[in-house]
């Protein structure tokens, strides 16, 4: 009766064969892989270069202005500006710049790939049927499973970090772009068609503008997920705040880890607030009243 309680391992998968296949691919496609990793490294590098050459007071002021506009409230603008300056004040400014450039590069690539895919699957049920299971897999697959192959194919450093981050963070922007476009009022779409819009006009003049609040929520979520990968990616050589946290944890320096971790949280909160509220319909009561006053 023993066989009933031990599942027969009938199908033996040669995981070593997969390993060697990946390695063989890494060798044979070295040129292409190097080009990709060089390109990604260059992208992160140039964003970092740009950020480093902006004087820090200008960056802080930019945070104040953008969060003021996004929140429509001066006080939160100043609050986020102070929080941002705090990162520099505790001596983590340069690391924050490195982290920010990796995150921005990842989000940029995620949007460049994610927005068109989202638009594509919003218009085609067949494409939707193919893409959805892939997105589900990407969301549920443990990060480390593709962290290692990324390391193998693209080497230690920023390029691997960007690729791993893109895989992890691209899902919300695809899903929410597609959802937003599908949720556009059917009559509005019919109206656009009835007035002789081409597919392009329908998409760019009606569907995307109408779906913009939802799409922006997707962008925001993608940004947040990219931030969540900061520490994880330091394991494959991404520098910045994540590396600081990792090193502190490895050496059991609780205080150092806490400070660096808090900086990550502050950066995440600021990025989140700055990307929210631009296109959502819920305006603060004050502007609503002002507009209603004009209408009368």
């Amino acid at each position: 009766m023993d066989w009933l309680f031990s599942f027969p391992n009938v199908l033996k998968i040669d995981t070593n064969a997969i390993d060697s296949a990946v390695r063989a691919f890494a060798v044979s496609a070295e040129g292409v892989l190097d080009a990709i990793s060089g390109g990604l490294g260059g992208l992160v590098g140039s964003i970092g270069w740009l950020l480093k050459h902006i004087p820090w007071p200008v960056l802080v002021l930019l945070v104040v202005l953008l969060s003021w506009q996004a929140r429509k409230n001066v006080r939160s603008g100043i609050l986020y500006g102070i929080l941002f300056a705090l990162i520099g004040a505790i001596g983590l400014w340069d690391m924050m710049i490195v982290t920010l450039s990796i995150v921005l590069a990842s989000v940029l690539i995620a949007l460049l790939i994610g927005l068109p895919i989202g638009i594509l699957i919003s218009g085609s049920d067949r494409a939707n049927g193919i893409v959805r299971p892939i997105l589900d897999t990407m969301q549920t697959m443990p990060v480390f499973v593709y962290l290692i192959p990324a390391l193998l194919l693209f080497g230690m450093g920023n390029a691997s970090a960007v690729i791993a981050t893109v895989i992890y963070a691209i899902v919300p922007v695809i899903r929410l772009t597609s959802l937003g476009i599908r949720q556009v009022d059917k009559e509005v779409v019919e109206a656009a068609k009835a007035f002789g819009s081409t597919r392009g006009q329908l998409l760019f003049k009606v569907q995307i503008p109408q779906a913009l609040p939802t799409i922006m929520t997707g962008v925001n979520q993608t940004l947040m997920m990219a931030m969540a990968m900061v520490v994880t990616c330091s394991m494959i050589g991404a520098r910045g705040l994540g590396m600081e946290v990792l090193e502190a944890v490895n050496r059991i320096q609780i205080g150092r880890g806490l400070v660096a971790g808090a900086s990550v949280v502050i950066l995440a909160v600021i990025l989140d607030r700055m990307t929210q509220g631009w296109f959502s319909g819920d305006e603060p009561e004050s502007t609503k009243r002002e507009k209603a006053g004009r209408a009368r």
Partner: peptide, 19 residues
Amino acid sequence: EFRRNKISMVFQSFGLMSH
């Protein structure tokens, strides 16, 4: 061309573009 020049439509729940 037909939809742009010859025929147009008014909808029950207006079908206006809120943006």
